[in-house]
Amino acid sequence: MLSNVVASQIQSHKRFGGVVPEIASRHHTENITLIMEQAMAEAEVTFSDLDGLAVTEGPGLVGALLIGVNAAKAAAFAHQLPLYPVHHIAGHIQAARLEREWKYPALALVVSGGHTELVLLHGEGEYEVIGRTRDDAAGEAYDKVARTLGLPYPGGPQVDKLAEEGTEDIALPIAWLEEDSYDFSFSGLKSAVMNTLHNAKQRGEQIEPANVAASFQASVIEVLVEKTKRAAENYQVRQVVLAGGVAANQGLRRAMEKAFTASDVELTIPPFTYCTDNAAMIGAAGHVQWLKGNTAGWELNGVPGLALY
């Protein structure tokens, strides 16, 4: 990896308590060429050194995707370079290849603000989604619980931090769903947290926020780790990868490490900077597209609800 430049908009969106799509698109339009320039300067490359451009085709916010796609098309066209379309989740998963080589079959647990998925990798860039959330993404539940606890945006890391100081003394439900299912559901858990806080308030009782955070976090982690472990055994995988923004969660990292230390399965957790949204991971997935010769035409468009490829 020669360079990995990220222009975070968190500071700007903080005041709204969440990402505002129109604001995100405006910032992207202003920053896109500056960030491309910085990435190329840090890598000490010029356009004549490049063999292609990789860009996120989807899924995501359509207005934001459009900026990346059109910028990539413009630069690729200007320099007559091939264009490699990348699925955002494939990017999160392929961040692992920046750490070490894949051992197939492999399993990836992708957890972020918008996604909670178990993905089986049969070979190079061959994905099969075996489980996904049926309602909220894990990261989404984290953000909502954080807001209920009055923690600042973005809430995920705040809940993780607070959980360290608390004890898991509140009984919260875990949605295991059907016995053989690898799907997830977090809306019941989220509601249970809100109800617990609401009822305590009605009764005039004090609940330690750290204990709420710890109990919530324990429930999320338990179901994530258990289903990953079961899938890893059933599919006889050789490697497990933890990916996505929530992979930065300390509690989840520890639980995954504990679950797989005694097994033959190799656990890979990319470093923090490759877990949260970044372009290095898109480059890594773009490399796979290059290996497979999967280029896009000039009609490439942003696709908000794109299926994994």
Partner: peptide
């Protein structure tokens, strides 16, 4: 945004 992004990226690159 589509026009501006395309134009500025082509020009910059």
């Amino acid at each position: 945004r589509i026009g501006v992004t395309t134009a500025k990226t082509m020009a910059w690159s």
